[in-house]
Amino acid sequence: MNIFRLVGDLSHLLAIFVLLLKIWKSRSCAGVSGKSQILFALVFITRYLDLFTNFISVYNSLMKVIFIASTVATVYLMYIKFKATYDSNHDTFRIEFLVVPVGGLAFLVNHDFTPLEILWTFSIYLESVAILPQLFMISKTGEAETITSHYLFALGSYRALYLLNWIYRYYFEGYFDLIAVVAGCVQTILYCDFFYLYITKVMWGKKLSLPA
């Protein structure tokens, strides 16, 4: 474990709970893409199948349980409890256009052609594009609530910190995973446009609105 990965995991945890609290407190999921949340739930479920078979540490197992539970809870709040506030008119990204190619790629490019490894690879590839429905929804509505932009900033920062973690581990531990690094770069690059808007607007107290 290193500081980049620890801060990255905590940033990820923060993002998930900021969103969960926003929906729970405001009793509304306006401006939030349910499709992205479904993809994140799929990412965690396919990645943490080894939760019971491959014990790494208490921290690792605890975080896996928290990530799965909180993301499933978010999907539940959005599609069941506060379904009336779900903005399906703007959450129109066709996620099958993500899941199918990512699934195919996971079969073709992976470290080991075993079910667990292919599912892990699928999860890594899917996570890199899972935020697209959310970014697409913001581009359609033209703006995002401030709390939603904080969620996105924390979520985008987590994988950027993981990139630093991989640089650190490469030099100090000789650890390198090309699939995770390439997917992590794609994932972080997708946030660049948002990071720019966040830093130039939200940081100065302005609302995040995309140039019309």
């Binding site: 080894d50 491959n54 790494i56 896996k64 080991d112 490894e117 973690n165």
Partner: peptide, 10 residues
């Protein structure tokens, strides 16, 4: 095995 052990990241 070694590969599986390597999966120590979230």
């Amino acid at each position: 095995d070694e590969k599986q052990k390597n999966k120590d990241e979230l």
